[in-house]
């Protein structure tokens, strides 16, 4: 498991309960989610009950307790994006990928998320594909973005198979 060794994250923060959120942030950045195993190690490392670690991990939106897909599609639903049609973008993803916000496609290729505001309001509606911010997105642009990522994902999967053989 990728989260087997958290020493580097816990380094210099052991027995400091106030570092909990920072530690979870680093784990989220490193592995894309916070696993049960990771939470146990954090609880031990910082000297906090596991229950409290779980509570904090559930409270803050920054933490995902499930592994996320290869492509994370994040639709900003801030006010400025909303009045410029971010609802259409949510429908586009729903219709195209058949998943709801917070879910990941079965093939693990896509995770669909919504965020309250990314602070790039002047360029709304905004969609973030992994780390790339896309301004003034329309449903059509989003459809092509997803199509392209899907194609690349399939190509890679096929290449991976032949590569192994």
């Amino acid at each position: 498991m990728a989260t087997a060794n958290l020493d580097s994250v816990l380094e210099g923060r052991r027995s400091q309960p106030s570092q909990l959120i920072e530690v979870l942030q680093d784990i989220q950045d490193l592995y894309g989610y916070v696993s049960e195993d990771a939470m146990e190690q954090v609880a031990g490392g910082l000297g906090i009950p596991l229950m409290e670690v779980y509570r904090v991990a559930c409270f803050y939106k920054a933490f995902s307790l499930q592994p996320r897909g290869k492509n994370v599609i994040t639709v900003c639903t801030g006010t400025a994006c909303h009045v410029r049609g971010s609802d259409l973008l949510i429908d586009q993803v729903r219709g195209q990928l058949q998943i709801e916000p917070g879910e990941t496609t079965r093939d693990g290729l896509f995770t669909f998320e919504c965020v309250n505001c990314l602070g790039a309001c002047a360029l709304g509606p905004i969609v973030v594909h992994n780390d790339a911010y896309n301004p003034h997105v329309t449903p059509g642009k989003l459809r092509k973005m997803i199509d392209k990522a899907e194609e690349e994902g399939k190509k890679e999967a096929a290449y991976g198979k032949t590569g192994k053989a």
Binding site: T77, A80, C81, C117, G119, A120, C121, A122
Partner: peptide, 8 residues
Amino acid sequence: DEGDPGAY
């Protein structure tokens, strides 16, 4: 923690 959506 600028949480107001629409403010940056």
